[in-house]
């Protein structure tokens, strides 16, 4: 009798544990982003982070889908609502322009978590509990680039090319200026806004004008800076990158790039959702927590100096 009971319990245990495994479906993420996932900037950095997480957790445990080029806000809102209604665990609305839509949508889907950025606003003040937010402290990375730039500049003039004077671009630029000023108070930083995230031609001509005006170190934000990088490469000016490691675009001139590693925000966010917290937290990406990284170009000045010391071509401190 006891054996039968034990057998029964065992079978029940096995079945229930199988059911639990079965219930523990893959964690499903939907990613809505304003530009293309191969933009070498904002969207690609998040896409790459999602791929990294998928590789860590395995395809059976983590799945994600994306909607790219959702620059039309009302289209993005439709996409966010659609994903939420399909039962995705987390919907990432990757743009500060999506906030207004999230406030409307999130309360209708309490079982879905939402995340957006760059911002510190989770709308918890409006009683919404299922929105996370993330914000890179771009000014920290900008500051590091600024210090290096001031050290490397021979003319004492540097140029920053940005899209419009808001958001991350503004914070990065202000950090860069602060870094330069702290290092060389006599240096001059010229800042130009092209009014567009995509005007490659204007960014190229701005870079030329800056170099003509005496700048020998340039930096900038958004996907249009590819034009400026091309000019800097041609004219031999030094370039500091932002968003993704831009060294592959011009190995000769890129010294370092400020890289945003979104996995630093995503990992704890996913863990929080799995333990039942659906929102209300702000994830900062800083140099301290590794959310911001300085990618040193191995073929650039810093990289080459390091390599020379390792090789013994440069001997220090004897």
């Amino acid at each position: 009798m006891n054996k039968v009971l034990a057998g029964f319990v065992l079978v029940a245990l096995i079945i229930s544990s199988m059911a639990i495994i079965g219930l523990a479906d893959a964690f499903k993420v939907a990613f809505v982003t304003p530009s293309t996932i191969n933009d070498s900037a904002w969207s690609q950095s998040m896409y790459d982070a999602l791929v990294t997480i998928q590789n860590e957790m395995g395809k059976d445990n983590f799945q994600f889908v994306y909607s790219e080029n959702m620059y039309v806000i009302s289209d993005a809102a439709a996409a966010i609502r659609d994903y939420a209604s399909q039962g995705y665990n987390l919907v990432i609305a990757h743009g500060s322009q999506y906030g207004g839509s999230l406030v409307d949508i999130a309360p209708d889907f309490p079982n879905t978590a939402f995340a957006w950025g760059s911002t510190a606003n989770t709308f918890s003040d409006q009683g919404i509990t299922n929105i996370f937010s993330y914000q890179p402290y771009s000014e920290q990375g900008g500051y590091v680039n600024g210090v290096l730039a001031a050290k490397l500049s021979e003319t004492g003039m540097m140029g920053v090319i940005g899209p419009i004077e808001t958001g991350d671009a503004k914070r990065y630029t202000e950090g860069f200026q602060a870094g330069v000023m702290a290092t060389d108070p006599d240096a001059k930083v010229s800042v130009t806004w092209t009014g567009s995230y995509s005007d490659v031609s204007l960014s190229a001509e701005t870079a030329r004008t800056m170099i003509k005006a005496g700048a020998d170190v340039l930096t900038g934000t958004s996907q249009m800076v590819i034009g400026a990088i091309g000019v800097a490469k041609k004219e031999g000016a030094i370039w500091f990158g932002y968003d993704v490691d831009q060294a592959p675009l011009a190995p000769e001139i890129v010294v370092s790039s400020v890289v945003v590693d979104w996995t630093v925000a995503l990992r704890p966010m996913i863990a929080a959702i799995q333990s039942g917290t659906m929102g209300g937290k702000v994830y900062d990406l800083t140099l301290a927590n590794g959310g911001l990284k300085i990618a040193v170009n191995a073929e650039g000045l810093v990289g080459k100096t390091i390599q020379a010391i390792i090789n013994g071509d440069i001997v220090v401190g004897e």
């Binding site: 140029g159 419009i164 004077e165 010229s190 800042v191 130009t192 806004w193 092209t194 009014g195 204007l202 001509e205 701005t206 004008t209 800056m210 005006a213």
Partner: peptide, 21 residues
């Protein structure tokens, strides 16, 4: 004129960028 507005900004002349553009 486009080149001129770039120069205005690079030279740090105090015009809002959008107006220059």
């Amino acid at each position: 004129v486009n080149a001129l507005q770039i120069w205005l900004q690079v030279a740090g002349i105090n015009v809002p960028s959008d107006v220059a553009l």
